[in-house]
Write a protein that binds this DNA or RNA. Structure first.
Lengths: 195, 195
DNA sequence: CGTACTCTTGATTTCACTCAATTCAGGTGG
DNA sequence: CCACCTGAATTGAGTGAAATCAAGAGTACG
């Protein structure tokens, strides 16, 4: 059991993939970098997420804690032993990977074809449905910075900010503080997410 | 063993996911549609690809043949029996899923952060390395239409066409015919792909 | 040789980016 | 407790890369 503080990196793209992680608390961002510093956040990880299932010998992305993260670290060899001993685990990992693949395809649609407004609305909707626990919530926590949201949605900080402001002006959301958004009109949010 | 003709759809987004496919010949495009017709192609599938491993009860994407496709179709129940009987298959699917996840993350970087020129160059590079068989080739086959490339790269047909023209004008590629591109200067192509 | 596509090329527009101030929030120390 | 500092977020003005709109040029096929 390892504790990771906010801003600390616990997986680095390109390094030898010698371990496998299971997040038991906190939140993290997963991202890829280009040589000139451009960044694409490919996802956020919360309690229960598995990370680092690399097929190649190196990690394909970096992972950095947003809120303090607790995680279980398995050496690669130990993972393979676990998989051999508990076939159900392998099935669970396969399901998990398939779920992430579906999410990745949805994100490709967002990045390739949606407008800024649709992206932000889709993001808020997804956060309301998915993140950490159970059923849709009206109050969405955004532990990540605006810059993280921008790099997740393929936008700039300014565009994210402007778009949130506009959604608020239209009465679709409220922004009680920088890390929370209240979904005031979910139906219109869904419409905004789909064009 | 089923034969699918070009333009024919063999998986439809939203329909009940009752089968699982293995492509044994040909090429196909996988895509998601928005209500107003905007399309994002999430990937191309060639010989050896597994498709339709849905966790949810419905398919998350559609699949349509580009060149004539031959495929093996497994009913969902049969797949589960196969997985139970051949644990190695499950391992293989997990590896496959992990590989696709890495590709999806790379594509998210492309869609979210790369310029049109970088996208087209990255695409040509990837086609040279990956598609159907072995090692890097200088002559890249592009069985898909320009519109498919555009919808894969998050661009318009016009931008894809203009960008290819420009790469040709710079002597980086040649375009002997509409379905082939010759990589004349792979080093510069790589540089064009990374900014 | 004409019809129907697809692809390419050109002109113009637009949405999001860039650059540039403010404003706001959270800490620190007087 | 309040002034100050710092980094984050918001807001505004102007620019630019790719989209849209509009022809024109190839290709394939009957």
């Amino acid at each position: 059991m390892v504790q990771i503080e906010p801003g600390q990196c616990f997986i680095t793209e390109g390094e030898t993939a010698d371990a496998f992680f299971n997040i038991t608390a906190g939140s993290a961002k997963l991202y890829k970098l280009m040589a000139d510093g451009r960044r694409q956040i490919t996802g956020f990880a919360f309690r229960g997420h598995f990370l680092g299932l690399a097929v190649s010998s190196t990690y394909a992305f970096s992972a950095e804690a947003i809120e303090p993260v607790r995680l279980c670290r398995f050496a690669r060899a130990r993972l393979f032993r676990l998989l051999a001993d508990f076939p159900a685990l392998e099935r669970r990992l396969l399901e998990r990977a398939a779920t992430e693949l579906v999410a990745a395809q949805e994100q490709m649609l967002l990045l390739g074809r949606k407008t800024a407004r649709e992206r932000v609305a889709s993001f808020l909707r997804a956060q309301a449905l998915a993140a950490p626990c159970g059923r849709p919530r009206a109050m969405v926590a955004l532990p990540m910075r605006r810059g993280d949201i921008a790099d997740y949605l393929g936008l700039t900080i300014e565009t994210v900010s402007r778009t949130l402001t506009r959604l608020r002006a239209e009465g679709i959301i409220e922004i009680p503080d920088q890390t929370h958004v209240l979904l005031r009109d979910p139906a219109r949010l869904v419409r905004a997410a789909e064009g």
